[in-house]
Amino acid sequence: MLDDLNILIVEDEALLAIDLSMTLEDEGATIAGPCMTLDAALEAQAGAKLDAAVLDVDLRGQAVFPLADRLKADGTPFVFHTGRANLAELRARYGIDVPILMKPSRPSDVVDGLTQAVHRPIA
């Protein structure tokens, strides 16, 4: 389903980052990261050709928005995967087309959200 896609994972919980990586690799993706800090994620994004990203909104108190803004500007699809987010703020800032997955989520929900993001027409 995600064959040959290079997907950046930004998640500050190590076990969850590993689980996400394994899930997406099982679907045929190559993983960039996982990155546990905003600085590491920005560096990874700058140095890679990404097809999509999974973004935790709150990285130990630091919002992932600078990275999400860069991905959006580059036309790189992404999904938010979060347990602590203001959904209204995310919708206002990134629109209704960016999937928001609330933790805990099933692995299939992450795969479905990424598939939806990657295959959505660019506005």
Rank of each mutant, 00 (worst) to 15 (best):
A46P: 07
M1S: 09
V118M: 02
A44G: 10
C35N: 02
A46D: 11
F65W: 13
V64M: 03
P77M: 01
F78C: 03
R120V: 04
P77Y: 02
C35K: 02
T30M: 09
G113K: 00
A53R: 09
A44C: 12
P121C: 02
R60E: 15
M36H: 12
R60Y: 14
D4E: 14
M36W: 03
L90H: 09
V79S: 01
M1N: 07
G113N: 01
P66D: 04
S21R: 06
G113W: 00
V111L: 01
L55M: 13
V54Q: 04
L38D: 08
L101W: 00
L55N: 11
S21K: 08
P34F: 05
L59N: 04
V111E: 00
L55P: 14
I7L: 03
E25V: 11
H81K: 04
N86T: 04
D56N: 15
D3S: 13
D112A: 03
V111I: 04
L114T: 05
M22P: 06
L5E: 11
E27G: 03
D12F: 09
V79C: 03
F80Y: 12
M22V: 10
S108V: 00
L59S: 06
G33W: 06
L8F: 11
V54C: 14
D56F: 11
E43P: 06
V110P: 01
D97Y: 07
A63K: 11
L90M: 12
R93K: 13
Q45C: 14
A29N: 10
G95T: 12
E43F: 11
E27T: 01
L55T: 13
R60Q: 14
L20V: 05
L87I: 13
L2G: 07
K103W: 08
P99Q: 01
A117P: 07
T76V: 15
